[in-house]
Nucleic acid binder design. Structure first.
Lengths: 350, 350
DNA sequence: CGTCGGGCGGCAAACGTTTGGCAATCGCAG
DNA sequence: CTGCGATTGCCAAACGTTTGCCGCCCGACG
């Protein structure tokens, strides 16, 4: 038998367990065990170190695909976002990645663009990929069925966007309370005439924020001006449009405005500015999310803190617990008012 | 042979080609071909539609892991970032995802935290995963060797951060020109005494920006105040620290400051504000990147546009071309000055 | 009527692991 | 010297595809 004295020194692609076994003069299965910490005890110290040596020398890299086929696990978590350009999702990805990377798992990412068919296709694709779990931040009302059928196949947690009438595990954020906080804040500043800029109704956060706000408002003698429709998407452009529509009605404008997220608030501010309406002098403006930098705007935006980073992290931890067979259902994270310069007490002329 | 009349209606997990073959009374390989558009012509129209019918009825989902093992392709692109919380990377991910999602590929994401060992481990892990390609936005000077050895195994493109002295395919952005634009802008406003806040030297963008700036400055009679060291990371905190150090030297401060990125510029603004130095009245400030929202700050930040979204998209396209066997090397994207309120002409007292 | 060729489909190997079961070996005690 | 248990390593099957090759059948042509 010819003895191979020199080999390409390192990191050749395609070194397999079999190569190592041959080189070390043992059976592939022995190599597999020697390299697997949880099975290493099944192989003698001496053989083990020898095998490890050969593996290192040859630059062995386990073939995770092959392993995945055998074990049924891919060390992969799907992350499904509606719109990756929304600054709101970055911290979620960041938190998620941080929570799972230690366990050797990595997120694989897709974007639905808030389109139902795309959403369905992506879920399907992720199942085909045999991801070990899914974190979905793109849920809309109409997606419930496919979400639940996916959840029957693979651990799935909702993050960022809850889903009305579903009992899927999720990272819960109390949007209703957030809405209340916004109303309470405006109330405490003396505002009576208020309005909301509504995000799309099929994204469950927004109706909840709206309900919380309305409830507190009506319970405290505030007058809520009916808003001119709702946004098709929770974007700055839509916020601007809604605000314009509101101003265009000709009726006496509100002194306090609650936009259902920061992007819409920014859009609203543009619309107000274009009409010569000043924030906060003429109108107090409250957003939602506390996006990066909104605290450095002028005026700095008063907003409700949405703890995106923690949501991402919690989602990751939830998934990992689910994978471990635990039955955890939810994880709670509270909203918090961050009062800044875009709101101020109502004055006589305001 | 018992005829199975009723089956679980749909989407059971674990329907395999074999199940379909059995059900349709053909060989698995025929099913495989019938379902593969590029092989479908090898099977008669009738059998094909029958097979498709059975597949749909059973809710068949191809097992991408098994396919990957066989074909060697995973339909997966690694995206390696230094810091996912930097608003700068989101648009890159967005662009990348958009560019590859149509081809059924998805990014799998990891974060190096700008640590060399973590970086090496992640590259290795990605190779183990058998990703089809890599987009690396986390390159530092010391990472060259491992990057090049990875690039020998799998198509790899650099995006966001170039690498000094390397000929890896990359999405090129002319940082030097960006630096020049910053200097030229300040010069055109009459500024003579200027300073830079340096990003870390082992991230190649920053020395290039610095060189472009310095060259234009000295070539146009400007006096560049030596800066007090450089940032360890390109973050707001570090920008603040550098600016403080600069002010603390006691020498006459510059009237124009070029921060090597927007985050550092924001940190610098804080430091200036804390000392009662006004922007732009006392100091004109230029950043880099044009992060979302910096145009809405007060004053809105003058900055150099870094086309992150296009960089991400271009990186995705480059990878796909590389996968197609093309030999493309680079893709160019120009910087662009965006003059806003944080810079203004030098006045007698400024 | 024989042969050729093309269309269609089956066969089996291969991709690189993991893992349950079994065999061999060894040490040690009876 | 034999028997027994524990330790160590081997065997082979299995995970779900893809794909080169071969064979069958049918029609057409010589």
């Amino acid at each position: 038998m010819a003895e191979e004295t020199t080999r390409p020194p390192a990191a050749r692609v395609g070194i397999t367990l079999l190569d190592i076994a041959k080189e070390a003069g043992v059976h592939p299965s022995t190599v597999s065990r020697a390299l697997d910490p949880s099975q290493a005890h099944r192989v003698r110290e001496a053989t083990r170190t020898q095998i490890r040596g050969v593996a290192d020398r040859l630059g062995y890299r386990p073939h995770l695909v092959a392993r995945g086929l055998q074990t049924g696990r891919t060390a992969t978590i799907a992350f499904v976002a509606a719109d990756l350009s929304n600054p709101f999702v970055t911290p979620i990805i960041h938190g998620l990645t941080g929570a799972i990377q230690n366990d050797g798992m990595m997120p694989v990412i897709a974007e639905t663009q808030d389109d139902h068919d795309t959403f369905a296709a992506i879920l399907d694709h992720m199942l085909s990929r045999r991801v070990d779990g899914m974190v979905v931040a793109a849920a809309r009302l109409g997606d419930r069925e496919i979400l639940e059928s996916a959840a029957r196949i693979v651990p799935l947690v909702l993050a960022g966007r809850p889903l009305e009438g579903s009992s899927l595990p999720q990272v819960v954020h109390d949007d209703r309370l957030g809405g209340e906080l916004a109303a309470a804040h405006l109330a405490s500043l003396g505002h009576r005439r208020v309005a909301q800029l509504h995000g799309p109704a099929d994204v469950a956060n927004f109706p909840r924020r709206a309900a919380g706000f309305s409830q507190h408002a009506s319970g405290n003698g505030m007058v809520e001006i009916a808003s001119p429709g709702m946004a098709n998407n929770p974007t700055a452009a839509e916020g601007e449009r809604l605000m314009e529509d509101l101003l265009a009605t000709g009726m006496e404008p509100p002194t306090g405005v609650f936009a259902h997220n920061d992007l819409m608030a920014l859009g609203a501010r543009s619309a107000l500015g274009a009409r010569g309406v000043r924030v906060p002098d003429d109108v107090s403006l409250v957003g939602y999310n506390n996006l990066p930098l909104v605290g450095r705007l002028t005026p700095p935006l008063t907003t409700i803190l949405y703890p995106s980073l923690e949501v991402g992290r919690a989602a990751g931890e939830l998934i990992i617990e689910l994978l471990g067979g635990e039955m955890v259902k939810t994880h709670d994270l509270e909203p918090e008012l961050i009062a800044r310069g875009s709101t101020r007490p109502l004055t006589a002329d305001g």
